[in-house]
Design a protein around this nucleic acid. Structure first.
Lengths: 345, 345
DNA sequence: TTGAAAGCGCTAACAA
DNA sequence: TTGTTAGCGCTTTCAA
């Protein structure tokens, strides 16, 4: 059985109150009792019960993260990196991280409601925002603290971090047009996802600036998985007049599209350009290495986590709404750099 | 402020106890009060405080999962799928999942100790076992419930699920030898990881059965990432006498090795065979599709989770130690099947 | 400088 | 059928 305050109190022959205060370094406790208490506490291996502390403080020191998954086989390097970013920061700041996985929809919202109703977390981090996001509406309505990775359609005033996907895609558009591309296709996720629209619009305006139009038949919807990148890429390649460049809205779909290209004995880079978004670790050593837009997911995770904890503690937050300017990472898949081997020889 | 039992009790003019028992359907409460209580409870939006319930029951209804990460950029499809498998089952059985990410070592063990000492979880799921695993030693010593995905060097008697990696690699070995390969290399992770040794031994004995020896210079150590698969693959390919087949111990490293091959203008499948292990979703549509060993990570996650909860509840567990027989998934990267395009034409 | 007592919200043994 | 009481382990007034 675990050692409690009571046990320590009996041992040192003091009241529970005194022991508690000694341990918390209250200055109305004599130096002697303080050291005595502290010493015996460690001797006896006393550690406070977080449950009891939490009940008394009426807070859980826990933050909730409900990951939106699609299907049972949830295999996404993006989320694992985000999770690590959040988890590390949470641990650093003394908070627990409660993780749940739910496909978007009613079940998902129920998960939030359950956690809120039973008061199991002090706040939430919301990721992968939707244009109209019921999760946010709900938490706003209930007055539960939360921070967000991503934006929604309407301007808001809760803390949030996002990358300027519109800008990132304009960089991509500019780069491709300068390579001489005009038949440019895009594989985007469900337009309900906020970043989908942002990135698609970014691509569109970026191209328009150079007089290039993004044709409707060149816009395909995927679900952000490798498989769907492959499928949608295949469809694009089999078009009567296929595009000369495919812009995927995340790296995973870009890799899938690359496979589709290579399966047709075409060369990514020279025959057709492929670009991604995220700059996941795999992008560096794919074949060919993927031109993409960098997004410091790990760091963003840490930022939203820290903001949330400050929000919970009612501490001031310097910048409430942070929009990061992304940078273009030019590698070989867009065809503008020679292949590594050629450089060597 | 949240509604408590007391609030409901006052409203219906009954004692807290009666309300509590009515809500729990005790049969010593009159039907009338029962309905009255239940009705007003929902009307008032009462939900029990999990904190209070847990303190009283002296259990947390929470399971702990400390993911061993390497470096800040933790991007691993294997773990995200495992997490979903565990998370879904936990939610289904009414348990919370507390996730922490720590690089193996002292910090990691401290994370366990902290969670144990402050009694924040009822038990742990341990993943990616080491041959001598201090996490297991610690939990065993402290008498904390846990289940394990993987094995260690010594036979044990706690609940565990593992895949027979030795067998899986023998399947690979047999398949490659039958293709006529004799210069076979392997990229394995740190031999301290239990599955590394298992798989390496499996490959070795599988080859030996056909009189093929696994040469020392053909054994490379990676860290399971895509980048290290690329690096170690490059080293193997640049050997004076390079191997004709590279067996990677996970899919991610296999993909990295494939990139290294392709960067040298060699063709995976015909010029050199590459195989993986895990059968992650990307394996199906990589270029070429990856021959690998299937491991139902998602399901295994669910299994260890369910076993742990039963263990915590002191319920009987049918099979305590489950070793799954893996199956070989033959695709194109080993060179024995024609490419898709050729089949079509 | 210390301790008694109340209370966080809940469950459960025991009386009435 | 219901209520009183105690207690889970802790923090924090308020007296002594």
């Amino acid at each position: 059985m675990p050692v409690t305050l009571k046990d320590v109190a009996e041992k040192v022959g003091r009241s529970i109150t005194t022991v508690s205060r000694a341990l918390h370094d209250y200055d109305d406790v004599s130096a002697e009792t303080k050291t005595l208490v502290k010493q015996t506490a460690v001797e006896m291996g006393y550690t406070p019960s977080s449950l009891a502390q939490r009940l008394q403080k009426q807070q859980t020191d826990t933050i909730g993260l409900v990951l939106p998954t699609f299907g049972p086989r949830f295999s996404d390097p993006f989320f694992s990196e985000l999770l690590a970013g959040i988890g590390n920061k949470a641990a650093e700041m003394g908070y627990d991280l409660l993780v749940s996985t739910q496909p978007p929809g009613e079940q998902e919202l129920d998960a939030y409601k359950k956690l809120v109703d039973s008061r199991r977390v002090d706040g939430f981090i919301i990721v992968r925002t939707r244009r109209k996001d019921t999760r946010i509406d709900y938490l706003l309505d209930r007055g539960v603290p939360f921070t967000v990775f991503g934006r929604t359609d309407k301007p808001v005033n809760f803390p949030l971090v996002d990358e300027d996907g519109n800008y990132g895609m304009r960089l991509i558009a500019e780069h491709l047009v300068r390579q001489g591309h005009s038949r440019i296709a895009c594989i985007a996720p469900d337009p309900e996802l906020a970043f989908s629209t942002q990135r698609l619009n970014g691509l569109r305006t970026g191209l328009a600036r150079y007089g290039v139009k993004l044709s409707d038949e060149y816009i395909r919807i995927g679900d952000l998985t490798h498989a769907s990148g492959y499928e949608q890429g295949s469809i694009l390649l089999d078009l009567p007049v296929p595009p000369t460049a495919i812009v995927a809205c995340n790296d995973l779909m870009a890799f899938g599209a690359m496979s589709a290209v290579q399966e047709r004995d075409l060369v990514v880079g020279s025959d057709i350009a492929i670009t991604g978004f995220d700059d996941t670790p795999m992008a560096e050593h794919s074949h060919p290495p993927l031109t993409t837009v960098n997004q410091p997911v790990h760091i963003i995770g840490g930022m939203v986590c820290e903001m949330l904890i400050k929000l919970i503690k009612n501490e001031a937050i310097e910048d409430k709404q942070i929009i990061l300017k992304p940078s273009l990472v030019i590698r070989q898949s867009c065809g503008c750099l020679p292949e590594k081997r050629q450089k060597v020889s």
